[in-house]
Amino acid sequence: MFPVPKTSSKYEWQASASIETIKLRAQTLRQIRTFFDKQGVLEVDTPTLSSSTIPDPFIESFQTQYIPLTQTMQNNIYYLHTSPEFPMKRLLAGGSGSIYQISKVFRQGEVSSRHNPEFTLLEWYQVDWDHRQLMQQVSQLLTELLAPFIQLDETVFISYKEAFQKEFGFNPHTVSKSELIKCTEQIGLADVLNLDEDKDRFLELLFSHKIEPSLGKSKDDNAYICLLYNYPATQASLAKTSMENDYPIAQRFEVFINGIELGNGFNELNDAQEQKKRFTMENKLRVEAGQLEVPLDERFLECLYSLPQCAGVAIGIERLLMIMSQKKHINEVIAFPFEKA
């Protein structure tokens, strides 16, 4: 896939998405709202600007400044949200019941055929559900949305472990780092990472190069919805962890179609102390990598004491539209992508 912005428009001011694709977006959003209305899931609206952000070292937030009219207060740094997760969980903790939101989110440094720094996220949470139930619903919603547009084979549920065993023959949860290094050498990916880097970086390298491209794509090139679950506990992020056999796993899943990552979901962690521990560790990694430390969202951490059992997932709308309209470049489904914004 060429990361060349595809623009069929004659003039610089014109949209890079066709009118058909712009209509497809409107129709898809309407269909999503109808889907959740029928389920009794409430649409909510949370702030785009926040005083804190996610410390994940691989997600970089846009920063801006609040300037008071009278210069008596100190100027404050605000972040554009990278996902509405924290305030949505504050609503859940306050007793909202199941909720969804369709919002624009912002991430630094992400421009490619599948990335625009500003993109649309559908995020929803189902109270009392776990990630397994939510995976079923993701499959149901995506099937409803995609079926009129593309031929879909039956949804596949596969664990992270099975995916690695199928491709490489080892269990990613128990494999040693030296085995992982040997594996990267064998497939021509030696020297990409430093040998002292975390085992997870090696797993991510192997995953993104050898597993992800074929997830959701059958041998005869048919598309299907692929739900990959039970990530290593070290990649838990905001998910609960549990023991499987003799190793810990994260109750986290991702969804892929045609080798494209569409979304990520969790059985949501509601242990404030554990979440704070993970955030603090991530901030430490940021500092070590020369990135800026970010202020932790104390209101979010505090709400976790009241967060009910719930599972949540976020789906990238532009990528969904790409699959629906069979477009190769994200710019073909955004009226005015980053280069034209």
Binding site: M1, F2, P3, D56, F58, I59, E110, V111, S112, S113, R114, H115, V192, D200, R201, E204, L205, S208, H209, E212, Q235, S237, E254, E261, G263, N264, A314
Partner: peptide, 16 residues
């Protein structure tokens, strides 16, 4: 000849 950004929602990004 070709540059592809492999950037997962979570985790390390690569340029292939």
């Amino acid at each position: 000849v070709e540059n592809e950004v492999v950037k997962p929602g979570k985790g390390q990004a690569f340029n292939r």
